[in-house]
Design a protein around this nucleic acid. Structure first.
Length: 262
DNA sequence: TCGATTTGACCGGG
DNA sequence: CCCGGTCAAATCGA
């Protein structure tokens, strides 16, 4: 169909924007963390880390500005294209029929983030379960979640959670898409299911607030066609910083991937 | 009563 | 045609 190729053509700069925005947010988080821990030079540190992070932030900001100026993929057109996608789905929601042909567009496998943990953890976002499927050759069913703000804020983020091991229990969470919803609208500090749990615990704050990120995860890695980097499990003490840096590197790699494609 | 979850049906890509 | 992702009616529960 012609429409799908049209959507795909617009999707690339949007994804680049999303990646760069994410990178800039993470760089800013690092900057705040450095300030709190005195690594920005205020506590006598000789490391020029703060300066590097500032340059990193500038790089993201400039790249985003260039993309904005050069193309039409600003937030408005993003919302527009999101609305178009929405429309293609709405056409089948008329009470007219059970005929759902053309009802939804299957996503192209875009950037995917996979997390594995020993229990089900809160990631700070509001999710709504919309499906469960038993998977071939898998012992446990796969659960499908979408962002609660899919409709009110056009947030297209989804995730899948599947138990992949019994003893000890191990869960794989696969994130698809980026959140475009307003995080500040959410409760930002979610109490984990079991307070003494030794697995993954995240705390997302909005950037302007005091930042606190704790991550303890047995394994984390990203999957993209050219990138597969398992995290070592013995870097707990500084894992939050390292994972953020890994996030940024991932953003850049995704960006250059798109660059070479276009 | 209304938002969240469950679950079988439906759909499209491979 | 099979499998996995999504939809949506039915059901749950606060």
């Amino acid at each position: 169909m012609a429409s799908s190729s049209c959507v795909h053509r617009n999707a690339v700069p949007e994804r680049v924007m999303t990646e760069l925005t994410r990178g800039r947010e993470i760089a800013d988080r690092i900057r705040l963390m450095l300030r709190e821990t005195g690594f920005d030079g205020s506590a006598g540190s000789v490391f020029p880390v703060q300066s590097l992070v500032s340059q990193l932030l500038d790089t993201f900001t400039h790249s985003l500005a260039m993309l904005r100026d050069g193309g039409e993929s600003d937030e408005a057109s993003q919302a527009l294209s999101a609305a178009k996608l929405e429309d293609s789905g709405d056409s089948c929601k008329t009470p007219a029929a059970k005929d759902r042909r053309g009802c939804y567009k299957r996503k192209k496998s875009s950037e995917t983030r996979i997390k594995e943990s020993s229990d089900l953890f809160e990631d700070g976002h509001a999710w709504r379960k919309y499906g469960q499927k038993s998977i071939l050759n898998a012992k446990h069913p796969r659960n499908y979640y979408r962002c609660t703000h899919k409709f009110d804020q056009k947030c297209l983020a989804t995730k899948q959670v599947q138990k992949i091991q019994d003893e000890p229990p191990l869960y794989r969470t696969t994130y698809n898409g980026q959140h475009t919803c307003n995080k500040s609208a959410l409760h930002h500090h979610v109490v984990p299911a079991s307070p003494d749990s030794s697995s993954v615990m995240w705390s997302f704050n909005s950037i302007k607030q005091e930042e606190e990120i704790q991550m303890k995860t047995p394994d984390e890695y990203y999957i993209s066609p050219h990138h597969f980097s398992p995290m070592s499990s013995d870097v707990y003490s500084c894992s939050h910083s390292i994972e953020d840096v890994d996030d940024i590197v991932g953003s850049f790699e995704d960006y250059f991937e798109f660059e070479t494609l276009s």
